[in-house]
Simulated assay, not measured.
Amino acid sequence: MSADDTVQLVRSAQQGSTASFALLFDRHYAGMLAVARRLLGGGPDAEDACQDAAITAFSRIGELRDPSAARSWLHTIVRNNCRTMLRDRLPVPVGVAGENLLASELDDPVARIERSAMRDWVWHGLRQLSPAAQTVALLRYFTENNSYEQIAALCGTPVGTVRSRLSEARRQLAEVLPRVHDDRHGEAVALRTERRQEAATILSAVPNGAALTKVAARWAEDMTFWWPGGIQTIGREPVFDVMRRDYQSGVSLTITGVLAGSGVTIWESTFTNPPEDPYHCPPGATWLLREKEGLVREMRLLHTPRPARP
């Protein structure tokens, strides 16, 4: 494949041609897989690293400034995926592009994808997936706690199920994204904005003294909450009891990201502990909210791993 052909395919893909991206990826896949196998050996992990790289590249092809560098860009994404897999912490694909190849390297990666011209298209496509595939795809590609083990713990499923659902999510995305490229995508943006505001209101309810029944009106009174470690409680009040105790201990909670899909919302948050008790709470958490008939019926919480104590 000549350099001119690569440049033409990249530019066509950046203008929205999914066929051009598919051809570009197919022509580079053998080299990407070779990179992955050198680092991970044969087996499904190497293939997973390449498939995750495809989703990353597809959603961020518009940010590749030098089309002739597509091969090294794709290989860098795969290499970074493999290295983080070897460290037992899988990557957030929206933030693993190659050095000196992105438009804004000093920015937060999530902020970059929020500004990407393709973001509405990608979010809209994700909402078309089946519920199980959509949830694992959102957790895998757009959250911090995104290893197979962490996703399994958050979803309450075996690791093997997470792997199979991600495989299904990739298959569905390959079919869905070309179809929705020209659709109207404003609904996905509006829903994410609405859910972000809702999250901020709910999680600030305790320090602001807001009434639980008002700020959490969409939470079913008999909702099920799964805490880290598998403990289960029923109702909204136990969640706010924990928030109150943390707040009274000097802990503050900040929303850092919100994802919204069809029947599912994902929050990411950080905890700031008081100076006198720096290990009171873990660094952060991922919250998985599952809805039915407009109400949140189930929530699951996963804490970000604590750093080692000095």
Rank of each mutant, 00 (worst) to 15 (best):
residue 71 R to C: 00
residue 154 L to A: 10
residue 112 R to N: 12
residue 154 L to Y: 13
residue 303 H to Y: 15
residue 295 L to R: 14
residue 29 Y to G: 01
residue 1 M to Q: 08
residue 219 W to S: 03
residue 134 Q to K: 00
residue 142 F to P: 03
residue 259 L to R: 05
residue 25 F to V: 10
residue 217 A to H: 15
residue 158 P to L: 09
residue 192 R to Y: 07
residue 278 P to S: 12
residue 117 A to T: 13
residue 35 V to E: 15
residue 225 F to A: 08
residue 213 T to H: 14
residue 100 N to L: 10
residue 112 R to S: 13
residue 16 G to I: 02
residue 152 A to W: 14
residue 120 D to G: 15
residue 143 T to V: 05
residue 253 L to T: 13
residue 206 V to Q: 09
residue 249 S to N: 15
residue 12 S to N: 09
residue 240 F to P: 04
residue 97 A to P: 03
residue 34 A to G: 09
residue 28 H to V: 09
residue 8 Q to Y: 05
residue 87 R to D: 15
residue 201 T to G: 00
residue 293 E to T: 11
residue 164 S to V: 00
residue 8 Q to A: 14
residue 113 I to L: 00
residue 32 M to A: 15
residue 147 S to K: 01
residue 12 S to M: 05
residue 292 K to I: 00
residue 195 R to N: 01
residue 42 G to D: 15
residue 143 T to P: 08
residue 49 A to S: 13
residue 107 D to G: 05
residue 57 A to Q: 03
residue 81 N to L: 00
residue 26 D to W: 02
residue 4 D to A: 15
residue 241 D to Y: 03
residue 62 G to E: 08
residue 171 R to F: 15
residue 32 M to Y: 12
residue 177 L to T: 11
residue 114 E to D: 04
residue 210 A to P: 01
residue 148 Y to S: 05
residue 176 V to D: 08
residue 199 A to E: 01
residue 105 E to K: 02
residue 5 D to H: 13
residue 31 G to W: 01
residue 270 T to Q: 10
residue 231 I to Y: 10
residue 18 T to Q: 13
residue 36 A to N: 05
residue 17 S to V: 08
residue 209 G to K: 02
residue 104 S to M: 02
residue 279 Y to K: 01
residue 24 L to F: 10
residue 130 S to W: 04
residue 169 A to R: 06
residue 16 G to L: 04
residue 116 S to W: 00
residue 309 R to L: 15
residue 3 A to C: 05
residue 114 E to I: 08
residue 46 A to E: 04
residue 77 I to W: 07
residue 48 D to G: 02
residue 162 V to A: 06
residue 239 V to L: 14
residue 225 F to I: 09
residue 26 D to G: 12
residue 64 L to Y: 08
residue 104 S to W: 11
residue 181 H to N: 10
residue 296 V to L: 07
residue 145 N to W: 02
residue 47 E to Q: 12
residue 198 E to F: 09
residue 246 D to R: 14
residue 22 A to L: 12
residue 77 I to Q: 00
residue 148 Y to K: 03
residue 210 A to L: 12
residue 196 R to F: 03
residue 103 A to T: 05
residue 135 T to Y: 04
residue 57 A to D: 02
residue 238 P to Q: 10
residue 87 R to L: 15
residue 2 S to Q: 08
